[in-house]
Structures are given as C-alpha cells and as structure tokens.
Design a protein around this nucleic acid. Structure first.
Lengths: 211, 211
DNA sequence: GAGATTATGTCAGTCAATGACAGATGACAA
DNA sequence: TTGTCATCTGTCATTGACTGACATAATCTC
C-alpha cells in the first residue's frame, strides 16, 4: 500500500475521530464542518471529499460494520438457512470488533452513543440500513433460490433480522467499549425472541402446516 | 370553524399540492422552497411556518395517514390481540382513504410516488415511522400488559408490523388512485406471509411449545 | 528527474433553515 | 361599527451545509 493511500486512510480516521469527539462534547448540531476540518487541519472542502455529508462521518463506523456483515454473510455456507446465516454473520462481526483493533471498537461504540443522542442521526442510521437492505435481500434470495422481485419472503426475512439488530444496538447510550458486551447480550435476547416466535422453517418458506 | 382556521387549512393543502406537483414534474432536488411558495403566492418564510422542512411537506400525507392509523388502533377492542388489532386498524385506514375524500387519496398516492422516486425522501419516510414507533410500542405494550422499557415483545410486534406496511406501500411507483388497490393487495399478501410464518399467540408472548 | 495522476486549498455561489421585527388580518367585546 | 388583542404574514439579515471551478501541491510511474 502506497504512501498516498495510507495518508488518505489516516486523514479519514482523523476526521471521524475529531467529529465524534466534537459531537460527544458539544453536540451534533452545535458542531460545524469548519470545526471538524479545523481540528484535523484540513480545509472544509476536503472534508466533503471524504464524506458526502455531516451525517456520513457520524455514521461511518456502523456503515463499515454493515460492510463487514455483508462480507461475513457471503462467506457462510450455502446450506445454512438464511436466518441462521445472518445471525452467525452478525456474531462474527461483533466478535471481530471485540477481539480486533481497540480503536475501531471505540469508534463504533462512540458512534452509537452519538446516534442514540441525536434524533437526526438516529433517523439517518435507519436510512443507512434501508439503503443497503436490497443487497441483503439479494443475498437472502440467492440462498432461498427465490426471485427477490416477485417473492416477498426474502424481504420479510431481511426485515425481521434488521429489526433484531435495531433491538440489539439502539437505545444503549453506550459509554465505553464494555457496552459492546451489552449490545451482544441484547442482540442474543432479540434473536431468541424471534426464534421462539417464528415457526421452524419460516425463513425457507417451508412451514409445516398444522392441518 | 373560523375563517382564520379555514384559511390556514387551505394554505396548507395548497402548499402540499403545489409541492407534490413540482416534485413530480421537475424532481425533488430541483424544486426550491421559493418555487413552492411562489406557486401558492406566499413568502418562503411562511412555508416554514407550515412545514419544518422541505421533506415534511412531501411526507405530510403519509404522516397524516399514520395519525389516522394510531387513532383507529386505539379504538380497536382491548381484547383483540395486538397484531390483529394493527392489521384491522390499517385496513380501516385504507378503506377510509378509498371511500373518503378523493383529493386526500390522490395526495397520498402522489406522495408515495415522489417518495419512491427520491432516495432522500425514501429515507425520510422511514425516519417518520421510527419517530412515531414509540407511540405504537406504547399502545401495543398496553394491550399486552407489558412494560415497554423492559420487555422486548412490544417492540418486536410493532417492528414486524411496520415491516409489513413497508412491504405493502413501498416500491409501488404509483401513477393513480387505482394503485391504492394494489397497495392494499400487497399489504394483505404481506400480512398473510407473516401469519403463516409466526406461531399462534406470538404477539401475546404465549407460544405453545412443541415439547 | 520529467511528466502524468491525484489530492488539496481557495473562492464564489446556491439553497435550506432560523431569528427578529414590522405590518396586515381576522377574532372578539363594547 | 369600532377599538383592541391575538395571530398570521412579509421582509431582512444571517448561519451553515454543500457544490463547482480552477489553481497548486503532493505523490506515483517510468
């Protein structure tokens, strides 16, 4: 990896860190792009070359997490049912976050704290999920051998799992990296609730009828 | 109702109609507040006294629909299980839309068309749902006699139903009022899918275990 | 080290959104 | 009808997010 790429990555992370620190300190609305750029000693114009909007920098860590999730999901064995594959992929993501780079985990937790505190970001985080939803739907449909356009099932399965991640991650008001554990516990509770509410085979469209 | 109130309501509807027409014609981003205000012959400042943002005017019809839904839900009998109560409340809302004021139905359909065409509005429509979600969760929790803070079930039930409405209303690219029928059909399909996927009694936390 | 790429800074500009104040309009009582 | 009050509206000024254009500076390739 060349110097140019390393420098870009360093600037990107510096912008995220500066933004999160300012958001936590003075609040999201009260922080301006000029201040974020100034803290990293970069022009405001450059900020927008890294992030398309003020929201995007705040949501960058969860957005990265979502990418990791998609990558993990595509690596799950094909014969694993869709819902179990998503649950296991999410467990992998969390584990990597807990055992990997501590800075990355801190960014994720801080980002969640900022999002929980700011309604505008809370809303934006959902937009993020929904924007990427079609990629998940496509992967789920592939596993089911379904047509994502015609069949409602892939969208349903994806939507239910998205709901569970929301139940796990949102409204945690996290303060430190230890809250990652709390999120993991809540996620497992949500998954367990879903598993006892849904009929076996529901995510494959093969529900045994009680005739 | 006094003249002042009637005038306000007329201006509000005129702003919505002008905005929807412009959005459909030139696109959401390409339309400015000045143009919307100009079409109704009010000052831009007045626009913001009716709607807090450009998004809000586009989302006004679905937002009104959500209010109707909450009203219908609170009027469902208490002994009706939460999920059935929500499904029936939604059916009522759609029926009122189809049999009531044709202008109101047209606004709803046009609004959905604009939302489907504009990613920013699509995202914002989700924010709308999530903002109001807690009110739904509270109502569901009341019906279950659950604590909405501790118990995950009310959030789960509300979230699943929210998912179904999304499946019914989104990506319809509606062109006319007749599309209301299409939405209703899709919603029923989604509800049917949920009902055969979920165990009886799931929304009351009383799932018969297969021991 | 020369030349091609790519990143950055500067500048000007658009547009959404807000606060402050003054004037206009409908509500209401005498 | 008229005067008074509350409320609605227009005008003005301002902030801050975001974008396009162009010049400069850094890095990469050979």
């Amino acid at each position: 990896m060349g110097l140019r790429e390393r420098k870009k990555e360093r600037t990107r992370l510096a912008l995220i860190d500066a933004a999160l620190a300012l958001f936590l300190d003075k609040g999201y609305e009260a922080t301006t792009i000029d201040q974020i750029a100034g803290a990293v000693e970069v022009s405001p114009r450059t900020f927008f070359r890294y992030f398309a909007s003020k929201e995007e920098v705040a949501l960058a860590p969860p957005a990265d997490g979502l990418e990791h999730f998609l990558a993990e999901l595509s690596e799950r064995p094909d014969d694993e049912p869709p819902f179990a594959a998503m649950a296991n992929a999410m467990r992998s993501v969390i584990q990597v976050l807990r055992e990997g780079d501590a800075e990355e985990a801190r960014r994720f937790v801080q980002s969640r704290a900022v999002i929980d505190a700011e309604p505008a970001l809370f809303a934006a985080s959902h937009s993020l999920l929904v924007e990427q939803e079609q990629r998940l739907v496509a992967e789920v449909a592939r596993r089911q051998g379904a047509d994502p356009e015609r069949d409602l099932l892939p969208l349903f399965v994806t939507g239910v799992f998205g709901l569970l991640t929301r139940m796990g991650f949102e409204h945690c008001f996290p303060a430190g990296v230890e809250d990652l554990t709390r999120m993991a516990v809540r996620l497992e509770e949500a998954i367990a609730l879903a598993e006892r509410s849904l009929c076996p085979g529901w995510d494959l469209g093969r529900v045994p009828q009680v005739s």
